[in-house]
């Protein structure tokens, strides 16, 4: 690691101020992505501003049909939350499947969404559930937030404060985890809401999380595994790496979507 200065922010406004003044400062939340990046010397920030303990970034709350989760909420706490389990069980289940227990004990929702790793789980939930990302500056719709691998609508110094998930009628998430890391080789989140059905795919897109329009159309007519089985996902925009070819991943997406659809149709 290159040297940096560590400071624990006392308030959200102090953190925002430090980040606004120093463009090479970085917010530190759970550190489960940032610290490995620093250890590999892939980044050289001047300062790390620790925001993990800020009360403004905590809390899980469900009212008026919206589940709101603070950005610094750890994966383990989302997974164990009775409020989340009751409101959107698929989201609690997703959080319980991230990485391993030690990673879930440190990693946070805000860090994962801000990082927008193409194989991360939360982006699929945020996009399928049509959530709003609430930042220190504004509210950003999920469709506008994710802008390609490791790229989001966040401006320098802008912090995610919380994420607001409108409650779906039903939702399901299925992923094929990479056997070593747990990251998604392919993960599909299907959410059925009053205003329509959305299918978000993570782990596979060459430019990160994406909505699978054909699957949304097919399932709008009725949710069933058979509706997905008829589809073919074109492999052109699918990611290829040492873990799998793009054709293999496209097939995995279809299988995960079939399973998620089967889980949903069983629930109805």
């Amino acid at each position: 690691m290159y040297a940096f200065q560590y400071r624990r922010a006392k308030s959200l406004s102090e953190a925002a101020e430090v980040l606004a003044k120093d463009e090479d400062a970085r917010p530190l939340s759970g550190g489960m992505t940032l610290i490995p990046t620093l250890k590999q010397r892939l980044a050289q920030p001047t300062q790390l501003v620790d925001i993990a303990g800020l009360p403004e970034l905590g809390g899980i709350d469900c009212r008026n049909g919206v589940l709101t989760i603070g950005a610094a909420t750890r994966h383990a706490d989302v997974a164990a939350s009775k409020v989340v389990q009751d409101a959107i069980p698929a989201l609690a289940c997703l959080a319980a499947g991230i990485g391993d227990p030690q990673v879930r004990n440190r990693g946070t929702l805000g860090g994962s969404v801000a990082n927008n790793d193409p194989a991360a789980d939360y982006p699929a939930a945020v996009l399928a559930l049509n959530a709003k990302v609430v930042t220190t500056k504004r509210e950003i719709a999920a469709d506008d937030f994710f802008q390609g691998m490791f790229t989001t609508a966040l401006e320098p110094g802008e912090l995610i404060v919380k994420i607001a998930f409108p409650l779906p009628k039903a939702a399901a998430y299925c992923k094929f985890p990479h056997p070593a890391s747990g990251y998604a080789m392919a993960g599909v989140f299907i959410a059925q809401a009053g205003d329509g059905l959305r299918v978000a795919v993570t782990g596979a897109g060459a430019s990160g999380v994406f909505r699978w329009a054909e699957a949304e159309q097919a399932l709008a007519k009725g949710i069933s595994a058979a509706a997905i089985e008829k589809l073919t996902l074109a492999a052109d925009d699918i990611n290829e790496d040492i873990h799998g070819t793009r054709e293999y991943r496209a097939q995995l997406v279809k299988v995960m979507a079939t399973r998620a659809a089967a889980a949903l149709s069983g629930k109805k």
Binding site: P36, K39, A76
Partner: peptide
């Protein structure tokens, strides 16, 4: 390891298992 994978460094911080190689002492 140097990659937060192996868990040999696991300790408890405030009662929770964490990988101490992926946490700053300052945290």
């Amino acid at each position: 390891c140097d990659t937060s994978q192996c868990g040999a460094c696991t300790v408890h911080v405030d009662g929770r298992a964490v990988k101490s190689c992926t946490m700053l002492a300052a945290q």
